[in-house]
């Protein structure tokens, strides 16, 4: 019968363990594995493969007017950089972008601060974002042109529109997500009002705020290039979008590609250098993001 079965009673033992020296306790990973751990190397490989594919495709179609190769684009890019035309265009675009982006961020913080402190502010934020977030910034451009004229004013207006809503939504979600214990700890230290927001809420919501900044940046950059493509130069000074549009009209397809490459390069630099280093010294270091 099963109930009769008893486990055997075995003798006890106790032995003194000698220091462990047979095998090293830690080992270094092989070089290939360590190299593969490097993000820049993996991403560089992806970029190289894409460039190779592009060049191959261009050689195969063999039509410089439709698809100039990677090397042709690079030489057009080098030329544009050398005669500083491209750099001027980039500078003009970035100045406008900076104005719109920064004002959008400031407005988003004001709106969010209002939203975390009052019921009315919460309602205001949710209503406004529900109304305006789905509205494409470009759709406002004709109206902006009417109001602010053919200048950087209307560009800044659409940029603010493209940054403000996603940024406010993300920041607000970040503030809402701060754990109760952390809030109580902050209040326990006697913090309240603005110092409380600065020393507890903002750092604790930084992952969400950073992702809002990233989304806002992408929206703004995208909106700016598109807006420049649509209405081009303001008082004779066009940005990068205008450069692309102009060269397409003149069928300099390699310069169009150079302009596009510049747009991509700036996006990549901002993403991998600026935002990645901000993340590395803040949220990653603090263990809030893996």
């Amino acid at each position: 019968m099963n109930q009769r079965v008893l486990p055997p009673i075995r003798p006890e033992y106790d032995r003194v363990l000698a220091p462990f020296v047979d095998v090293p306790v830690e080992r270094i990973l092989p070089l290939s594995t360590r190299l593969w751990q490097q993000g820049w190397l993996r991403k560089g490989l992806i970029l190289a493969a894409l460039a190779l594919l592009w060049e191959g495709l261009a050689r195969w179609t063999d039509n410089d007017l439709l698809l100039p190769g990677f090397l042709a684009t690079l030489s057009a890019l080098a030329e544009g950089l050398a005669n500083s035309e491209l750099l001027d265009r980039v500078r003009i675009s970035l100045v406008v972008l900076g104005q719109g982006y920064l004002s959008g961020i400031v407005l988003a913080f004001l709106l969010t601060t209002l939203a975390v402190s009052t019921q009315f502010g919460r309602d205001l934020l949710s209503t406004l974002t529900a109304m305006f977030n789905p509205l494409p910034a470009i759709a406002l451009l004709p109206l902006a042109l009417l109001w602010f004229g053919l200048g950087s004013g209307s560009l800044v207006f659409v940029l603010i529109h493209s940054v403000l809503w996603p940024m406010a939504l993300n920041t607000y979600a970040g503030f809402q997500g701060v754990p109760d214990t952390l809030r109580m700890a902050g209040r326990n230290y006697g913090l309240k009002g603005l110092p409380y927001v600065q020393q507890i809420l903002i750092p604790a919501a930084l992952p969400a705020i950073l992702s809002g900044l990233k989304i806002g940046w992408a929206f703004a950059w995208r909106t700016l290039i598109a807006a420049e493509l649509v209405f081009g130069a303001a008082s004779g000074k066009g940005g990068l979008g205008w450069y692309i549009f102009q060269n397409r009209n003149e069928l300099y397809t390699d310069r169009v590609f150079a302009g596009l490459l510049m747009v991509i390069a700036i996006g990549l630099v901002v993403e991998t250098v600026v935002f990645a280093s901000i993340e590395r010294v803040t949220v990653r270091r603090w263990g809030m993001v893996r």
């Binding site: 952390l182 326990n188 006697g190 604790a204 930084l206």
Partner: peptide
């Protein structure tokens, strides 16, 4: 709340991670 009564909570997230 005030710093004359400091609370040690059960949760580990009482320490600002930054």
């Amino acid at each position: 709340p005030g710093p004359d009564r400091i609370v040690v909570f059960q949760e580990f997230d009482q320490l600002p991670p930054w």
